[in-house]
């Protein structure tokens, strides 16, 4: 049996100490990466960086700057890990990073995504063409009435 060593990758959609990825792996080393490409592409302003950094200082994470795929992979290698845990995100960039980590490591690293607490359990597949359709479908569940 192989002992599974896990690291947690924290991303900027989930900067809470109650992040399901952190809470479910309290002893695992964790990392956050300021992604250079994202900072450049979105021209993320200094005030946004300060806010995110202040959030990070309350989390048990190593903070790095660079390319997310390289930094997370390197962090996992440093800790002799073969499994990365992260929380879910709707961002296509998140999905891209997850798949590139698996690809570049040629299968040595697996990435598990933990779902964050949903706002509402949808009663059925939601019609998202307009907010009104969505709201009418979820309203009672959301308000608990």
């Amino acid at each position: 049996m192989t002992l599974e060593r896990t690291v947690v990758w924290v991303h900027r959609d989930d900067l809470s100490p109650l992040s399901p990825a952190l809470v479910s792996h309290p002893d695992a080393p964790a990392i956050f990466v300021f992604d250079d490409e994202l900072l450049r592409e979105w021209k993320i302003s200094f005030k946004r960086i300060v806010f995110i950094y202040e959030c990070l200082l309350e989390l048990p994470v190593t903070i790095r700057r660079g390319d997310s795929v390289s930094e997370v992979t390197d962090f996992a290698a440093k800790h002799g890990s073969n499994r990365i845990v992260t929380s879910s995100s709707p961002s296509p960039r998140h999905a891209q990073i997850v798949s590139q980590i698996a690809q570049r490591s040629e299968g040595r690293l697996s990435v598990d995504i933990i779902e964050r607490t949903p706002f509402v359990h949808a009663p059925r597949k939601l019609d998202l063409r307009r907010f009104t359709y969505y709201w009418n479908a979820v309203k009672d569940n959301v308000l608990g009435s």
């Binding site: 900072l39 200094f46 806010f51 202040e54």
Partner: peptide, 17 residues
């Protein structure tokens, strides 16, 4: 690089507290 463009800092503090 970011600070060179605009180095304002928000009064809104980050963090769970």
């Amino acid at each position: 690089e970011a600070a060179a463009v605009d180095d304002h800092v928000s009064e809104t503090r980050g963090g769970r507290a």
